[in-house]
Structures are given as structure tokens and as C-alpha cells.
Amino acid sequence: MTLLDQVFDIVVCLLLLVLAWRTLSATHLYQSAIFFIAFGLTMALAWVRLAAPDVALAEAAIGAGLLGVLLVDSLRVFARPPETGRDSEPNKPESRDNDVTTSRRRPQFNSAVASVTAGAGCLFLAYVLVAAIHDLPDGGGLTAQAAENLSRSGVEHPVTAVLLNFRGFDTWLEVGVLFLAMLGIFCAGGLVGFSETENPDPPGPLLSWLIRGLAPVMILTAAYLLWLGKLAPGGAFQAGILLAAVGILLRLAGIPLMDRVPRTVIKLGLTFGFGTFLVFGIIALLADKAFLEYPSEWAGEVILLVEAAAAISIGFTAFAFFAYLNSRDQSTGNGDTAGQPRETNPSQ
């Protein structure tokens, strides 16, 4: 490890800390969201430095990309008072820039004693964490076991082998968590569907031209990433988020997608990955093997099938997050909140 490497690592770490600090201390929520996206992208750089390119791809696509889009979309909602029902004009230009999104006061503690105690507690926690890392035995973890069984896993890339074969259980339940989060969002928002938002600023012709050209390329890239997962960094998550990005861009360009697709297809898409895992798990059980244990001669093909199903499901779910949240505020006119009393007025 050369000095230049060390300097680069230190610069990346300092950048991470400064961005995290600025994210949390910014007075305007918009600044916070933008700093957070920058933080996610710098984090991706840190993952590359730590020899974890798979994690870097996932962080850039999901952590910075998808969550960034959701955050910025939420800003739009928080930027205008919630009374934007039938009576008031939701698209008044000045209502976008009012300071509802500004934190009214910087975070502060009640007394100096409290802030000193909290600071000391935080520093102590940091010390304990770093000290614990320093004292851990240096055994190499499960690297040796993974390397030993890699030839029987059906793939050549160790991270994919762990994700889809050795710990397929985790990935199965993770697709389940995505599905549960989707259900939670449905429950939190009420049944309003995926109808398109009325965009006050239509994006102009260029974006829809670009996305019409790029959508096939992006879908092809997703398939390539999926295939690549067998031997190099890539795989179901990255491919799935790329598919979701196609949907999000199409929606932003004003090309309707979710309300053209029949409901059955949406339901099928949301549950496809979870179901495919389950089917292969049950087949393994029926063949007197452990749950989700693949026969080693077929493992590569089974993994590719399961990954493809998971990618489609992840793409559908991630896009549904955005499409559902994005379309919800349009529905302030429907019955689910209209009759309820407003207690406080945030614009005061």
C-alpha cells in the first residue's frame, strides 16, 4: 500500500464525514437531500476502495439513486401545505419555494451539560467501536469455506455464490421484505392506484426523446448485468434497479406505464421473485434436499432463473415505490382524507 493510496483513502473518508455532517446540519431540506445523494455516491467510491465493487454498484443504484429520487419526490410534497385539496391552487409558483421545508431552528440541546454529556457519549461509542474492531481475531472469516465450495456453487463470482446459493435463504426473505415494504406503503397511502401525476412543469421534448432511445439500451444493460453476475460483479439487485430506473424515467417523461399495464400483471410482477424462490425451495424439499439447495450440476441454470425472476420483481417493486408515492398527492381530491379535521396549520 503506497502513500498515494493512503492519501486517497483519507481524502475519501474526510469527504464522507464532511458530506454526512453537511447533510445533517443543512437548514434547508433540499440541501440535505442533495448532500445525501452526494454522500451515497462518495460511499460507492469507498466501496470500490474496499474491494467491494458489487456493493458499490448496489449503493450507487439503490442507496443514492432510488432513495434520492424518493427523497426529492417527498420534498415536493412537504414543500406545500397539506391543504392542497380542491379549494386551493396546488401549483402556485410561490408555494413551492416557501420555507415549510426549512427547519425552523437548528438542532440544539437545552443546556450545556446535556450537550457535553451527549458529545462525550458519542465519542465513547466511537472509541468502543474502533477498539472492538482492533481487537477482533484475524481469522479471515468465511473466506476459506467460500473459496472451497465455489466450484460446486454453479457460478464463478464468490459474492453471487453467497447471495444466491450458500445464503439463498437471505435473498429469498429479502425479496419478501421488499414486498412487505410495498404492502406497507399501500397501507400508509390508501388505495389510490398508480395514476399519473399532473406535472406542473412538463419535462420538455428532450427527455421523452432520450428515454425512448435509451429504454431498450437500459433493459439490455440490465440483462447484461444479470448475466455478468455469474463471473463478475453484477447480479439481480443491480439489474432490478436498472429496470426500475427505466420505469421511473418513462414516468418522469410523461409516458404512462403503470396505468396501461393490467392489474394482474402488476400483482404477478410484484410477487414473481418471491414465488420463484419458493417453487425452487419446495422442489428441493420434495427431492429430499435442504430448502433452497440446488443440485450442483444444474446450479448455474437454476441460479440464473431465480436471479432473473428476482430482478424482475425487484424492478417492479422499486418502480412501484416511486409510482405509488408519486401519484398519491394527486389524489387529495378523493375521499380518504377529505372529511378529517385539520388540527394544525404548518404555514403559521
Partner: peptide, 12 residues
């Protein structure tokens, strides 16, 4: 791709 995406973001 970066050219196409960048010019579009700037246009937007």
C-alpha cells in the same frame, strides 16, 4: 451515455 445523460440533465 454520459454525454446523453449529462446534456439532458443540463437541459432539464
Amino acid at each position: 451515455l454520459a454525454l446523453a445523460a449529462g446534456s439532458n440533465a443540463c437541459y432539464a
